[in-house]
Simulated assay, not measured.
Amino acid sequence: MVPSATRRGPRPTREELAAAADRTIPDVIAPGLDVLFVGINPGLWSAATGWHFARPGNRFWPALHRGGFTPRQLHPSEQGELLDCGLGITNMVARASARADELTADELLAGADLLTAKVARYRPRWVAVVGVTAYRIGFTRPKAAFGPQPELLAGARLWVLPNPSGLNAHFTVATLGGAFAELRAATTAG
């Protein structure tokens, strides 16, 4: 039976969300992407639906559109359309949790190693990590800031964006859109 959460309209039930803990969801990825966006890990809503950044209140999809990456705001269920735009999504840590702060430093370090191997395999031009704290821990860069990073990741240029989770109250949809637009400008400049 297909859970109600895998259809576009209905919300996952409390039971479906609880059952989604520790699940993984497939990457949206292909060789030679322009940008591979890297979430911290799937939330329970994403794991219940199978869609990245699926929880209502997550600002990834509006920021992606406002930043100029997509011609219209996509619904998480339309994530496969990203490939036609030269974009993809993966996560630092594959297992779903209610909050990113439930992850251990060891999980983020191991996730950074897996991400590096994935980038070496798929060869995106840019890698954009959405979450500076996860980036700092996973890549042992405690002073890393938002924006372009000085090092490459398996040959790809590297950028750190703010976490678009609704739990990150420091950024609005407009400021997130501006941060995504800075990355978009860099990707079109070279």
Score class of each variant (00 low, 15 high):
S165Y: 02
A98S: 09
R141E: 11
K143I: 06
A145E: 13
G166T: 00
L161C: 10
G131P: 01
G166F: 03
Y122Q: 14
G166N: 03
R141T: 08
F171R: 12
D101R: 06
A100I: 03
G147P: 02
P148S: 05
H170E: 14
F139Q: 05
A174V: 02
V160C: 08
A110D: 14
D101F: 01
S165M: 06
G177T: 04
A96K: 01
P162V: 03
A174L: 08
L158V: 07
G178D: 14
L176F: 07
I137H: 01
A120S: 14
N91W: 11
N168K: 09
V119I: 10
E151T: 10
D101N: 10
F146W: 10
R157S: 05
E107K: 00
A94Y: 08
A110S: 13
L167W: 12
T175S: 12
V173E: 14
G111P: 05
R121T: 13
A154I: 07
A98V: 05
A154M: 12
E102H: 03
V129H: 08
V129C: 11
F180A: 06
S165D: 08
R136Y: 10
R123N: 02
T140P: 00
A134S: 10
Y135Q: 04
W126V: 00
A154N: 08
V160I: 11
R125P: 06
L103C: 07
G166S: 00
R99L: 02
R95V: 14
G177H: 10
T172P: 03
N168V: 02
L109H: 15
W126L: 01
L108F: 04
T104K: 06
L161Y: 10
A98M: 02
R141A: 13
G178Y: 00
F146M: 08
A110Y: 09
W159H: 02
A100Q: 09
Q149D: 07
N91M: 11
A128R: 09
V160F: 08
T172A: 02
A100N: 09
F139G: 06
A96H: 02
L176H: 08
M92T: 15
H170L: 14
D113S: 15
R125V: 12
A156Q: 09
F146K: 03
F139N: 00
E151I: 03
A112H: 06
P124A: 09
T104G: 03
F180W: 13
S97E: 11
A100M: 07
L158I: 02
V173H: 01
A94R: 15
R95I: 15
A110Q: 13
V160E: 06
N91F: 13
T140A: 13
L108V: 08
K118G: 07
R125N: 06
L103R: 04
A128F: 09
L167S: 13
I137M: 00
V93T: 11
A169Q: 09
V119D: 05
L153D: 02
S165C: 08
R99D: 03
A134D: 10
L108C: 05
L114C: 14
K118E: 15
N163Q: 12
A94F: 00
M92A: 14
A98R: 03
T104P: 09
A154R: 10
R141I: 04
F139E: 00
E102P: 00
G155E: 02
H170N: 15
G138Y: 01
E107F: 01
R123H: 12
E102C: 05
P164K: 08
A120W: 11
G111M: 06
A156H: 04
A179S: 13
N91R: 08
